[in-house]
Amino acid sequence: MGLFRILTEKPWLHSPQTPEGLTFEESQISGSPQKTALLFFMGVVFAVFGLFITAYFIRMELDDWRPMPESTLLWINTLVLFLASVVLQLTYNALNSDRANFVKLGLLAGALLTAAFVAGQYTVWQQMNGQGYLINSNPANAFFYVLTGIHALHLLGGLWVWTRAGIRVWTGTNPEKERLAVELCALYWHFLLLVWLVVFALLSYT
């Protein structure tokens, strides 16, 4: 289903059944609508972070920029978020291989690890604040708090996806939808892990 083929179809010439024309199925985007919507949403989130990061680079060039010190806790948090992502992926795999007892456990573990990550980020904030790196004392600090904060908010927003998956798993009436919900949950977590890695790299190396 090439985009080019779709956009060059001559709608006034062919019935969709004729061999030269596209059949209807070819022009329909397959897959679940939930997944399509999530992909677009991830695109939106990507734009939000992309723009913050662009602003970061531009603001960094001005001479009042003083980088923040590094925090070891951030490495630990990164590991925790990484584990959350892995656990959710394993949960999805378990669902496919019918190891059903792991599924509920996996979902819960994923949520707990995520909560631990957010709590960890909060602790970093406290540390930085305690050492006098206030949000308004330098633009580098301001970006640090805003980027980590917005990222954490997106994780908390993931609760929506997570809850949907939870409901599906606990009621367990529709295996196909259950699989999809868990898949999307894992996908969103991978995405936010990726965003975090980029943000983290940015914060540590500039």
């Binding site: 779709i6 956009l7 179809e9 001559k10 709608p11 969709p16 596209l22 209807f24 022009s27 329909q28 985007i29 897959g31 609508p33 399509t36 919507a37 677009f40 949403f41 939106v44």
Partner: peptide
């Protein structure tokens, strides 16, 4: 807008009736 927008794009891409190709 984002909530509405996700709906509009998904509906256009995936909920067209039979015979409604993109170029129709």
């Amino acid at each position: 807008f984002t909530m509405g927008g996700l709906n509009y794009v998904t509906t256009v891409l995936q909920a067209r009736t039979h015979g409604m190709t993109l170029m129709r």
